[in-house]
């Protein structure tokens, strides 16, 4: 099989330029890269057809060198249509992406970032188990327990800081719970649900000092 030299050079340039474009962070360039590589692949398919200029007709007794192979052109046609459709779709996505973020760049995954920045230390799972020496803590003990039985929190330098942090968290949860309770009570009063009359359960549970 002979391959047209010009075709080969063009193909190499298309692949090289396409791969270079792909390494960019701009989406439009990525798309251009894909288009270039797609065309390079089409030329590669074309090159497999052998020398052009002969009729694509096979009759008995014709040697393989004496006719053109029409199949690669059928394959190229299919590949062109597919690349065309995908390019159109990608342009749609890129436009939408620009419309949403005013940036023609590949966006980072925020959840990825969050997981990566997470401390390996998990207050709930990794802390030493709280040592409960008595079955019931007295009111004094609860008040003086500066780490809530939690062990050391790496984000807070002093026990006071940790206590303040937990108190803030507790207040937030309590506020949230009472807002919920109010909203619910308004709704439930029509149905007369007895449990809704009690004070929100969250506040009680959290003063026991189990967790933040």
């Amino acid at each position: 099989m002979t391959v047209n030299f010009t075709l080969l050079v063009v193909m190499a340039v298309l692949f090289a330029a396409g791969i270079y474009q792909l390494t960019e962070r701009s989406l439009t360039r990525v798309l251009l890269g894909i288009v270039l590589i797609g065309n390079g692949a089409n030329l590669l398919l074309l090159a497999t057809a052998g020398r052009p200029g002969k009729p694509p007709i096979v009759t008995n007794g014709v040697a393989a060198e004496d006719y053109s192979d029409p199949l690669p052109q059928a394959l190229i046609l299919t590949a062109i249509v597919i690349t065309f459709a995908v390019t159109a779709f990608m342009l749609g996505i890129i436009y939408r992406s620009w419309w949403l973020s005013r940036q023609d760049l590949v966006q980072d995954d925020t959840e990825d970032r969050r997981v990566a920045e997470n401390l390996a230390y998990d207050a709930e799972e990794d802390a030493e188990l709280p040592q409960e020496t008595s079955e019931f803590a007295t009111a004094d003990e609860v008040a003086n327990d500066d780490d809530g039985g939690l062990g050391v929190d790496p984000e807070c330098a002093t026990p006071a800081q940790a206590a303040a942090k937990r108190a803030a968290g507790r207040r937030a949860v309590d506020a949230h719970a009472s807002a919920l309770a109010q909203a619910l009570r308004a709704r439930i009063n029509d149905h007369g649900d007895p449990e809704a009359e009690e004070s929100p359960g969250i506040a009680k549970n959290h003063t026991e000092g189990g967790r933040k």
Partner: peptide, 22 residues
């Protein structure tokens, strides 16, 4: 975006492989 770019690339690689095999 990530999904489409990666999938299209793998398809192009497949197409190039087909051309070479042919």
């Amino acid at each position: 975006t990530t999904y489409v770019v990666v999938s299209v690339l793998s398809s192009l690689l497949f197409l190039i492989a087909i051309a070479m095999i042919y």
